[in-house]
Structure formats: structure tokens, C-alpha cells
Amino acid sequence: MRYILFLYAAIAFVVLAAGSIILPDWAMFLFAMALAKGLVCLGIVAMMRGGVVSFGQGLYYCIGAYTATLAANLWGVSDIFALTLFSSVVCLIVGMIFGPMLATYRGIFFAMLTLALSMVLYGTLSKMSVIGGSDGLNIGSPTFLGWAPEGRDLQTALYIYVVAIVVITGTLMRIYFDSEQGLITLATRDNELRVEYLGASVRKVMAYNYTFAAVLGGLGGTIAVVALGHVDPEFAFWTTSGEFVFVAILAGYMSVPAVFVAAIILEVVRSFSNLYFPNTWQLSLGIFLLIVIVTLPNGLGSLLSRRKGGKT
């Protein structure tokens, strides 16, 4: 059945990449940002499948973004592949440190601890004037294996790069979700006692998901900073993390594409509401989320998944 997945992935890539031909610049930027944030949200979804929600994924979004920026500014690295790899590895290491520590917490404790970690980073970065303090840092345009595009070419190249990363990681995460470990994760959210008594370590399951989410957060942060050209401590602020959770809940835990659809919906609603109702866009988002929760308790993804659903 795997080749069907690869076929879907290829179709998704072609369809999304075609956007680079049709979309105007502003829309391409909006999609790139939405997809980058979608990666972070996919990490939250990975944790949600195990029954926990992180309210501090901004931590890794921010670490990824700062790592890429510092690598570019201090060592002159501009190659986007190198930047991506470097910041994912940093996030992987940080995730492997905090993952096992947080893996014994559940529910509100897990949510608050992850939130606290991200706010510690926010506070620290805001005070560190060597790296820009609360103003943050700028990063130059990326190069692609020696190619240094400009203008529309740069936009297009960056957009295609995001699409490729999204399709590859999305496919990998689908493989993981469908795997034996993926099933163990779903069972953990349901009945930890059963899982332990079958001989699996619930703590390990939680630590793995947290670590994967850290890497996804780093990927999202790297792409976002390269697209924006700027990073500041707001990347780790709780409202940023809150948006990621919003998207994850909107998408639900069943479908990978739903996460990116939800992320795009959020960005689109935000830009249009900003344009037409500048002060009430959170209100429209809130109402939208309410409607989704009431009508589709398992999120948008339940429309895209054939899985027989349980309750939450």
C-alpha cells in the first residue's frame, strides 16, 4: 500500500509546486509561511496522537530560526540545505534532552511545562542584546547549492523548497503514524496501562514524539526565518505557540494533509481579516474553531481519513 502513499506525495508535490506558476508573489509568501508553520503543527499532532499537547512549540520554532540566523551571520553560511540541516540537528539534540524529562508528564502539566520552557527562551532572548535583544536579527537571502537567485526567482525557489520539505516530512510522518510505533502511540493516548503490560515503554513513546516534534519545529522555524528575513523573540512567545495548537486542533490527529490545509486556512483568514476587520480577526478565528470543534470533533482531518473514529 506504500506506493499509493508515494503517489499521493508526488501528486501533492506537483499540485503545490504548480502554485509557483499561478500564485502572485504575496500569495506565494503566504503559502510558504503557512506551510512552514504547518510543519511545527505537524509536530504537535504527533504528540496529540500520544495524548499530550505542547503549548510551547514556539520553543523549537524559535531555536530553529535563531540557529539558522546565527549560522548565517557568524559563519557566513547561506546555503539553505546546510542551514536546514544544522538547525534541525540542534533541535534534535535539544529535543533529546528535554524529551525524556517531559515524558512522564501528561495533560495540563505537560502543556504548562512546555509553555514555561518556551517562555524562558523568550525572556532570555529578549534580554540578550548581543543577539539583538527584543529587536531580533536579520538574515540575508539564502543560496541554493551555490545558486543565488533574486526577486521572483528567489521567491519561487524558496517556495518550491518549502513544498519539497513539506512533502518529504509529511510522507515520513505518515509512514511513522501508520507504523507499529505509530499504533503504539495511538494506544498510549487510550490506555497506558495496557501498553506497559504488553511490554512497551510509554515514556519512550512520549520522548520519541516530543523529539520528532522538536525537529519539525526547527524545520518550520528555519524556513520561516529565511522567508521573512528576520527573527525576534516573538517566535517563542506563547501566542505563537497558541496558534500552532489552534492549527493542530483544527486539523485533528488523523490526517497529515489536514494539518497543512488548516495552517493555510489560518494564514488566509488572518491576512483577509487583518485587511477588512483589523481588530477582530482573532474573533473570527475563534468562531471558526468553535464551529469546527462542534461539527467535527476530530478536526478537519476526519473528513480526509477513512479511520473509524473514537471520541476525542
Binding site: 495511538l186 487510550d190 490506555n191 503490560y197 473514537g310
Partner: peptide, 11 residues
């Protein structure tokens, strides 16, 4: 002790 959100086969 079973996983209520999974089917019998999935358990």
C-alpha cells in the same frame, strides 16, 4: 484493559 478507540483487530 483495552484501547477503546481502536478496533478489535487493531488491539
Amino acid at each position: 484493559q483495552l484501547c477503546n478507540e481502536l478496533t478489535v483487530e487493531e488491539n
